[in-house]
Amino acid sequence: MKVRDRWDRWAAIDAAAVFVVFDDPDMIRRTMLEGIDLDGLPFPVLVDQERSSYERWGLQRARRRDIWLDPNVYKVHWRLLRAGEKLRPGGTDVLQLGGDFVIAPDGTIAYARPQERDNRPPVGELLKAAREAAAAG
């Protein structure tokens, strides 16, 4: 989670963050949070195994070809392998897409980037949106 690595920049604008996952909590701890001190995380990791929030926020499931024929997926895996990381099983649904949103202090959406394939915006872009929302709020 790159946001965690640069949390001081989020804290400087009194921003909060929540991360939502849909896999089994034990699997989450063993995979994406492996080696991370959960008590030291500056934000909560919320669990939605039924994916009702994914649906309410309009987050789609990808078509198989949008994941498996996407060269970026293989570039990311190659980068992870070169960095010495191990590839892990894909969880319960590799087609479920996510998304990133920045909520302004007044509760409106300041930034929205629902995924259309396996890509995420740079953390700097999210931080810029949060800074602008803080300044406007």
Binding site: W10, V18, D24, R88, P89, G91, G98, I103, D118, A130
Partner: peptide
Amino acid sequence: ALGDLAGRPVLVSFLRHAG
């Protein structure tokens, strides 16, 4: 709840699978 964080900018990130 998201409402607990009102008054601050909040990043909400929905992640893909756990792998």
